[in-house]
């Protein structure tokens, strides 16, 4: 297949997953809604009155208060995590780097947990996001400084650093849990599992705005990430200000991960699986990779969220558990392949 036909195939695939995922997510739940009602309600919201528009106020409120915010935050968080993964892999020069695996998500969760214990109501939603960002930033910097040598990161060093950072963050979260009152404790436990349930439009707005900015900046830097694949020194020879690019990228990764974690908890492996699949279809060039990862990550998370609601009747599974259940074996497979190819763990 030529690159053009592969690209077309990818666009069709993503569009199908996106539309299908969003529609099914809006329809399925404790209170079933028909696809025509979903479409009619959406059309009415943008000022087009059709006969599909639902008359039942319960349908309207289910869609607009419960399901749509949940869908939109799923899209935004999925996009943020997948793009954070792609950017991280670019600056580490390693396809196994991922915010969840190397501990950036845990760092952000620690930040968010700290914000809650300090009194989330006082600082507001933005405060939680800010703390999550700072926690994520600290973790990213730590991983970066410790695990890189000569412009590249060996798999072993990266994973070991991830273990250490995850351990430190877990200890921090445990301590925060210990000193928290029971209400905060409940809220923190919910994060560690990850969930899109109970999303408010205020939260959606923050994630959506920050996510869009992060993805847009990553797209602008895409060409430079391509050059970075040649190694740091070669990228510099081609005119890339490597130090500045690195610094920028670390902030972007922390921003995207922090804002994703702040309201939905730790959702691992999205940043690993999505960019990898995209690379397999259209190759590693970063412009297409970042764009497709954003759309694919969003679609994947909406579908995963749908599965958490339907897999076990009458109960809701934590979404972080689900993504890890699928992502973990995938990660194993990647490790196995890389090991076989390079004949070792380098």
């Amino acid at each position: 297949m030529t690159l053009r036909s592969r690209t077309v195939a990818l666009v069709l695939l993503l569009a199908g997953l996106l539309v299908g995922g969003v529609l099914l997510s809006a329809m399925i739940g404790q209170f079933p809604i028909t696809p025509t009602e979903v479409v009619g309600s959406l059309l009415r919201a943008i000022g087009i009155d059709t006969e599909w528009a639902p008359d039942d106020p319960l349908v309207e409120s289910t869609l607009w208060v419960i399901r749509f915010p949940r869908i939109v935050i799923g899209l935004a968080v999925g996009a943020a995590l997948a793009v954070a993964g792609a950017v991280m892999q670019a600056i580490f020069g390693n396809p196994l780097a991922e915010p969840g695996v190397v501990g950036v998500s845990s760092g952000a969760a620690l930040g968010a947990a700290t914000a809650i214990v300090l009194g989330a109501s006082a600082i507001g939603l933005g405060g939680i996001a800010l703390f999550a960002f700072l926690g994520g930033l600290l973790a990213t910097l730590l991983v970066y400084v410790v695990s890189r040598a000569g412009g590249r990161t060996e798999v072993v060093t990266l994973l070991l650093t991830g273990i250490a950072v995850n351990a430190i963050a877990s200890a921090g979260i445990a301590f925060v849990l210990f000193i928290a009152d029971s209400a905060s404790r409940e809220q923190i436990v919910f994060w560690q599992l990850g969930s899109l349930a109970g999303t408010l439009w205020d939260q959606v707005a923050i994630v959506f705005v920050v996510g869009t900015i992060g993805v847009a900046i990553s797209l602008m830097l895409a060409k430079r990430y391509d050059l970075l694949a040649l190694g740091e020194r070669n990228a510099r020879h081609l005119g890339v200000n490597v130090e500045r690019l690195r610094l920028f990228s670390i902030v972007i990764v922390a921003l995207l991960t922090g804002v994703a974690v702040a309201f939905t908890g730790i959702i691992s492996f999205v940043g690993l699986v999505v960019p990898h699949l995209v690379r397999m279809i259209i190759g590693p060039a970063h412009r297409g990779l970042i764009l497709a990862s954003a759309v694919g990550g969003g679609a994947l998370l909406v579908i995963a969220d749908l599965l958490t609601r339907v897999l076990v009747p009458g109960a809701e599974l934590p979404i972080g558990m689900l993504t890890s259940l699928v992502g973990g074996p995938f990660f194993f497979w990647l490790l196995y392949r890389q090991r076989r190819r390079s004949g070792g763990w380098a």
Binding site: R152, L230, G231, N234, L238, G239, N241, V242, P284
Partner: peptide, 20 residues
């Protein structure tokens, strides 16, 4: 860096590429 890149090119000894 960009001005320099238009005036001199360098072939280094190691030329590994991180992605295919």
């Amino acid at each position: 860096p960009l001005e320099l890149a238009r005036r001199r090119a360098v072939l280094t000894q190691s030329n590994a590429v991180s992605f295919p």
